[in-house]
């Protein structure tokens, strides 16, 4: 088939940086017990503390897929658009499957049917806003735009 594996590997190498950032956030989420919690990471730079503190506050909420067709393309698109409008990290989980809610491709891998409970985890400076916005999308079955929060 004449596939160029070397070129493909090089492409992967080039994307490693963003993956590590995401992994760091995931590690934080896994390491913390029930939330919200604030954890001081002991930065040597006082000016960094506010940012780090806000990153370490993890907000969790269980959301249910109520629409008949499940978490198909359009709902995933609406979630991704909402998440991308905020600086906070947003993770949706179904069991051991975790998806960066800013990535449509990752959200589609959840394959969540009607009635499925998903875990929503948000961390960042505008966490409450995005938490409420994404929850509202689930609550209205992705049928109408979320109310302003």
């Amino acid at each position: 088939m004449g596939r160029s594996k070397d070129v493909a590997w090089n492409q992967c190498e080039g994307k490693r940086g963003s993956g590590e950032t995401q992994q760091r956030v995931r590690h934080l989420i896994v390491a913390l017990p029930s939330c919200p919690q604030t954890v001081s990471l002991g930065s040597k730079h006082p000016r960094d503390d506010r940012f780090i503190m806000s990153e370490a506050v993890i907000h969790r909420r269980t959301v249910k897929v109520i629409n008949e067709q499940g978490l198909h393309f359009r709902p995933c698109q609406l979630i991704a658009i909402a998440a991308q409008q905020h600086r906070s990290s947003v993770i949706l989980s179904r069991g051991s499957t975790r998806a960066d809610a800013k990535s449509l491709l990752e959200l589609l891998t959840l394959a969540a049917e009607q009635g499925t409970d998903l875990e929503l985890e948000v961390a960042g400076p505008d966490a409450i806003d995005v938490l409420n916005e994404v929850t509202e999308l689930f609550s209205c079955g992705f049928q109408s735009p979320p109310r302003p929060v």
Partner: peptide, 26 residues
Amino acid sequence: PGDHLRGLENISRHLRNDHFCKFLRQ
């Protein structure tokens, strides 16, 4: 709808693989 979701899941899972996309385009 479940089959539709599983089809989308399957395609998305493979499309996350850079090798799969690269080889497909080749």
